[in-house]
Structures are given as structure tokens and as C-alpha cells.
Write a protein that binds this DNA or RNA. Structure first.
Lengths: 338, 338
DNA sequence: TGTCAACCTGTGCACGGTCACAGGCTGTGA
DNA sequence: TCACAGCCTGTGACCGTGCACAGGTTGACA
């Protein structure tokens, strides 16, 4: 019997109570943990729930409790950089799945333009979601400052440079990953490993360079480093620069796959074969890595694990746990370019 | 003054009413359209809203109205095919933006596994969202049947083959797009245009082939058609088949960019130059189209417009309008391959 | 002057839960 | 026999909004 006692609409907690011969309070107790409820009452309620086909009304529950049972996936990327990368989709999907497993849902918030940012901030501040999964590459994001100031539970994807300790985060081991790649390049016999680094105000720009420097130790030489901004074009330009400053280089570690793609194009233009003359290593294992010519050796970011971890961490923060910063290992994916 | 009259929590409609010297009902009327309310009362309420910093509580509103002010973006792709394509992200982002403009939000629902499908169906049936933006490539999707049976407002992305007329949809002009591509190939002097078609139980498989056939008219020849399943590998295999059956072909129209990528690989393997010996045209303008070697000439799907149109259509359906099917034009993007 | 429509306003109830509190029952120990 | 703790249950208030209804005011018109 899936009809309701009252006859109209979906069965409510009252219908269940009536069917079970108990009060609303008891039904509520059974639904939420069920402490201090006699076995007979619990069984009766559970049967009544099954009989009536009762499902709790989230809107009513949210109104009463103030919680919403959903998290926001907040994107603060003005450009479509993240969007263009299949990894982003993996992150999004992973988060949605991790939430679905807990009976929660994911609300997608896009905050590209200033107007959108305001709306998103208002939406979050209004308590429509219990917390925020923040996806942002920029270190000095004012939106993050806003979230922190309002005390909204937040987990950042990637280390939030200006807010260390103030907000929980999940990030890949940038330094360790960079060191792994440099070690790999040198292990295959390369002597002079150059680097195309990213902007220093992003964690990927800063810490991947740190890892490169750490691994090289005394062999580190400023002339072998050039900078890009994660675009393909900037990688190509940085490579041009390196070929002038350090023409004897025999390997390049790019701080992102996109910049590696640009670097490869430049190398080819100048007649340097990849990987025969110059080995090229990237970072991210973005979608284009496998389809590049030659297929790119790179550091894989475990976005599926990262998103699951972010969800777990955020729920902890919501429950009152202190902020934590979790680091996930990057893994070397050897293809052809190095 | 952004504090509340009662002192605790956020200001409610009562606080606004008190501040404006009117009743709750009048405040409610001002908020919702404001018909039948005197100019003075409206002004007083508006000022009171600004003074108190009042924002309407969606949970309470949803409980009272039964509406949720959000739509679901429902993905029914078992594999990550859609996810791997940046176009998917454009679709998602476009939908989120179109909703944000209306003060609504987008809930992401992933229904890959059977369990996920059930949960998603239950979630939707529970009235957590007002309607569903369905993203599915499979024609006979049981989830769609379920949605239709339950009378849940739905808009499909792409023509839902088994449900013509039963559900609103937004799709690209498959036939017209295919004809445009074939016309382009012939206009550049190609005489024997072959086709790598997709599965006939998908709209892209069926209608792009129809367009190809229509455009060729009397010149259509069954031997010049092979089938794939949208994967790169299947495109490569179909191309092998075509080279055997119709070795004199001088152009290929692939029903997707991924299959075009496979076709190009096969052609190169057999020493046919692209586009010198064989011109290749694709469909979708997927992310990989621009980075293929040579860059792929293809039909661009306007996913940004499609998503906005889907949202508009779904809101119409929710408002009680009859189901409509809207077709958006695909545009030819000429790169190097044809 | 009475009737009536058009306009504006306030009030009570409903939406479907949660939670605090009071109170009943039972068994134990003084 | 009484006090009291431990367990279980029911009730009323409340979360913040929308909506139907009733009623009040005003002006036009017969």
C-alpha cells in the first residue's frame, strides 16, 4: 500500500505515526538514529514507513534544522581553463558521487563574473548549502576571504596560499611530484634539466618550482628556469627563451601539460627532436597529455581521490573538526616524451 | 542596520513587517510580484527589506509552495565519454549560468550505476527539484521513461528517439549540419565522399547519416558507409573497412570528431595524406578537434546556446506549456583537414 | 442613498518536519 | 512505602513562508 492515510499528496510523518500506532515524535526518533525507542515501536514504525512509502521531506527538515544536506561546488575561474580540462569533470563527478553516497547533493555554483560572485556569496551566506568545495587556482581569491570571514565551512582544492591554517584544503604533493619528475628525467640520463614554471602566486607555480630546485640541489641554475601562465602559448614562449639562455638543455620539466605542449611545439620548430634531443615532462596528466605528439610523460593528479577527500574533510569541518590540510601523492605516468 | 528585530538569527518576514509597519501578508505580496499593494506600502516594505538586510528563506518558501527553485542536471552516461569532452563542461556551465540569472540553482545528479540511477530517480520524484535537464545519448533510456511516466518536467539534450512528442528537447540540426559538411567537402572538389556513421539508435548516428544521404541524393552508395560507436578505435576500424570496400574515396565525413581522429590515424597508416589525398570532416567540434594533426574541420555544436535554450524550455514546461522540440543550427568550422 | 466593483490589507492556517519538555511506567535501594 | 533514576512516549511550540479568506475603504453609478 503506497497510498497515504490522508488521501492527498505524499505520506507525511503523521501518516506513518498513525499507521504505526505511535506519535510523530517516536517516528522522528526512529528516523534520526533511533535512540531511546523500544524495539517494538521501532519495528512498527519501520513497517509503517515501508507500507506507506514514506520519504522524508527535505524542505521541511531543512526549515526545522537549519541544515540543507547539500554542498556547493564553487568555481571561481574567470576563464574556461579549468572547464576545458577533463580533469575538472573528474573532480566534479567524484564530488557528486561522494555526496550521493551520503544521501547529500551537490549544487553547482559558477562565480566567474563579479555579479556571479556576489550572487554565489549571497547564496552560500543564506545557508542554502552546508559548506563549500572551493575550486580556485588564484591565491588571493577575495571570495575565499569572504567565506572565511563569514565562517562558512570551506575546503579548498589546492593550497590556498594566503590562508594557510585558516581553511581546510586538499592538494596534490606539488613538491614531491616535481621532485619525482626531475628525478625521472635525470635517471634517464639527462644532464641539464630546464624548467618552465608557472605563476608564483599559484601553488602549482610556486611549489613545483620548489621541488625542482630541491631535487637539483647544487646543480640548480637560475638560467634554466623560465615562466609561463599555464597557457600553451606561454609555454612556447618560455621555451624560446630557454633555448636562447640555455641552448645546451637536454630536458624540460613544464609545470603544466598545457605549457609542455607549447614547449614541444617550440622545440620541434627549432629542429630539436622529442624525446631524442630533449626530453619533456609535464604535470597534471590533463586530457591532452595522451593525445600529444609524442604522448606526454607527466605527473598524474588523482582527482577522483582528491574530490572524495575534499567531501570527507568538509563534512568533518561542518561537524566541528579543526581545519586540516591533506596532501595526496602524484604519480609518474611514463609515455613517450621522456 | 543589518541586525534583526528579534535579536536572534536572520531577519524574517515578520521583522520586515514590523519595521515597515504592515502585516506579513503585505510583505509577502511585495516580494512576490507585488500586485494589489499600495505604492506607500510597497516603498515602506522595500526600505524595511533594505534596512533589515532581509533575504527570503528558500527552505520555508519551498515547504510552503512545493517548489524548489532548482533544476537537476541529470547525467545518465555509464562511461565517461561525455565527461571527457570539454563540450560537456560548456553545457553544464551554460545551464548553471542561465539558472543563476533567474535566481535558481543547478543540482548535479550523476546516474551512472544502477544504484545511482535509483537514487537519482527517487531524489527527483521526491520533488527536490522542479524539473530535469536530461543529458543522455542513449535512445532507449529507461530513466527517461520513468521521468515521463511520473510526469516530471523534463527537457532532453538531443532528440529522445523513443519519445518523440512526449518530452521537450533541444538538439542541434543533425541533418542540416551533416548536409553542410558534405556540401563543403564536395565544394572543395571531392568526388567520392565516404562516411563513418555512428550507432543508428542514437540521434547523431541516425540523422547525420540521413543528412549525408540526402545531400548526396543519387550519388549515395551504400559501400561508402561504415559504422563506429563514437570511440577513436571504432573510427579507425571503420576507416580500414572503407579503404577496402571503397579504396577510391577522396573524402570522409565522420559522425563525430573522435571517430574522425581514428579515421585520420588509419589514413596516415596507409600512407594517405590528409587533406591532400583524403579530406576529413568531423562533427561536434570537440576539444580534440583543434589539437588534432592536422586540425580538424568539423561542425560546431553551439552548446552554450543549447544549454540556455534547455533551461528556458524547461521553465516553460514547468509553467505548463506544451512540449516543444527546438533545433539549433550547427556551424561549419574550417580548419586544415578539409 | 444604496449597491457594487475594484483595490488594498490583515489574519489564520497549512506546509512537514525537529526538538524540548513533561509525564508515565518500571525497578531498585533506603 | 517512598524517592529516584532510567527508559520510553506524547504534546505543543516553532522553523519562515505562501495563500485563501474575510473584511475594510473608496469611488462610480443607478
Amino acid at each position: 500500500m503506497v497510498s497515504t492515510a490522508t488521501g492527498r499528496g505524499r505520506p507525511t510523518i503523521r501518516d506513518v505515526a498513525a499507521a504505526a500506532g505511535v506519535s510523530r515524535g517516536t517516528v522522528s526518533r526512529v528516523i534520526n538514529g533511533g535512540h531511546w525507542v523500544s524495539p517494538e515501536a521501532r519495528e512498527a514504525v519501520e513497517r509503517a514507513i515501508a507500507d506507506t512509502g514514506y520519504r522524508t521531506n527535505q524542505h521541511a527538515r531543512s526549515l526545522a534544522t537549519g541544515r540543507s544536506n547539500s554542498l556547493a561546488f564553487l568555481l571561481t575561474e574567470p576563464q574556461d581553463m579549468l572547464f576545458a580540462d577533463p580533469n575538472f569533470a573528474i573532480l566534479l563527478r567524484g564530488a557528486a558521487e561522494a555526496l550521493a553516497r551520503r544521501g547529500m547533493t551537490l549544487v553547482l555554483l559558477v562565480a566567474g563574473t563579479p555579479t556571479e560572485r556576489e550572487n554565489a556569496a549571497a547564496y552560500v551566506a543564506d545557508g542554502h548549502v552546508d559548506g563549500v568545495l572551493l575550486i580556485s587556482t588564484h591565491a588571493d581569491d577575495p571570495l575565499l576571504a569572504d567565506l572565511v570571514a563569514r565562517g562558512i565551512p570551506t575546503v579548498s582544492c589546492g593550497l590556498p596560499l594566503g590562508f594557510t591554517g585558516q581553511v581546510a584544503s586538499v592538494s596534490v604533493d606539488e613538491i614531491g611530484g616535481a621532485r619525482t619528475m626531475v628525478r625521472h628525467l635525470r635517471a634517464t640520463g639527462r644532464q641539464r634539466v630546464a624548467m618552465v614554471a608557472g605563476p608564483l602566486d599559484t601553488p602549482g607555480g610556486r611549489y613545483r618550482l620548489d621541488g625542482y630546485r630541491d631535487e637539483l640541489g647544487a646543480d640548480f641554475d637560475e638560467r634554466y628556469v623560465a615562466y609561463g601562465d599555464y597557457t600553451v602559448e606561454s609555454g612556447a614562449a618560455a621555451m624560446e627563451e630557454l633555448l636562447v639562455r640555455a641552448p645546451d638543455l637536454d630536458a624540460v620539466f613544464a609545470a603544466s601539460d598545457t605549457m609542455a605542449a607549447g614547449a614541444i611545439a617550440t622545440l620541434r620548430k627549432h629542429g630539436r627532436r622529442v624525446p631524442d634531443d630533449v626530453a619533456v615532462g609535464g604535470f597534471d596528466d590533463a586530457g591532452l597529455a595522451a593525445t600529444l605528439d609524442p604522448p606526454l610523460t607527466t605527473m598524474h593528479q588523482p582527482f577522483d581521490l582528491i574530490s572524495a577527500e575534499m567531501v570527507g574533510l568538509l563534512l568533518d569541518v561542518i561537524a566541528g573538526a579543526p581545519h586540516k590540510s591533506v596532501t595526496m601523492p602524484a604519480s609518474l605516468v611514463v609515455r613517450t616524451s621522456a
